[in-house]
Design a protein around this nucleic acid. Sequence first.
DNA 1: TATTGTTATACTCTATAACTATA
DNA 2: TATAGTTATAGAGTATAACAATA
Lengths: 154, 154
Amino acid sequence: MHENPRPDRTATPIELIEQLARVAAAYYRHFAAAAAGHGLTLMQGKTLSLLTRPRSMRGLAGLLSCDASNVTGIVDRLEARDLVLREPDPSDRRVKNIALTEHGERTVRLIRADLMSGLTALEELTAEDRGALRSLLDRAFPETTSAAYRALPG
Amino acid sequence: MHENPRPDRTATPIELIEQLARVAAAYYRHFAAAAAGHGLTLMQGKTLSLLTRPRSMRGLAGLLSCDASNVTGIVDRLEARDLVLREPDPSDRRVKNIALTEHGERTVRLIRADLMSGLTALEELTAEDRGALRSLLDRAFPETTSAAYRALPG
DNA sequence: TATTGTTATACTCTATAACTATA
DNA sequence: TATAGTTATAGAGTATAACAATA
């Protein structure tokens, strides 16, 4: 028995960041494919997925990490396909609240189902492993908890 | 003591996928900021980071998950800034191998350092936690191991 | 015949700056 | 004065189709 057995796998911060890069790329590859299956781009699919409740244009810009001026075009294209609609905000007439239409709701469910069916390995994890993975991701990216996202204004 | 205490955190496959979406978005937000600090776009920074060894145009297209025709423009812009260069392949004159210049090597190191300094929570994990996270990510995305990436042709 | 890289094209995404209508 | 949404603009990323050079 050796004192310092060589581990099969390294896990330096650099190695972990490189794997996160590959996982993030793989996630978006799967997501973009699911969105494309419904004739939508990555950003359009992302926008639909973020509309779990109505959001203002600027709220969407924050969630999409892009300038508010971009959201106009993205929402224009989604609205032209009857996937979302702009509702005037009753308490501030400057604000428009973007909400999913029924067609949008249906589409986002289909995209999510396609995405999940593409991520079979993830679904095959045990509940315990999923909990451990989630907990570790929360600690590695503390700004990305679901509570933090839900609480965002707009 | 209850038989079925309500857990603080759920970890259904759907919840986990939603958190992965947030983590992937956060990763790219950090990466894009690090690349922008050196006047580079996300795709330009990604391309530099993938050039751990010379890659053909089509090899890069595969790693970037985009059509080969896009790589021409991306590499054009990097080459114009002396970050990469095109080398003819000695064994197949159709192929061009893209390699980092010295300036490219330096830039990619700086981007990586900036990225790491933006992901402080990740670096603060214990070695054990990093190993566990890496192992779980490997199992959740088995196509993204570093060995699989290194072995890709081109 | 098939493959590599490129070009042409049209569309989408992107930040910046300026504008309008509200607040 | 400040903010929300939009428009105009220029640049970058994107897929598709077609092309020349090479295999």
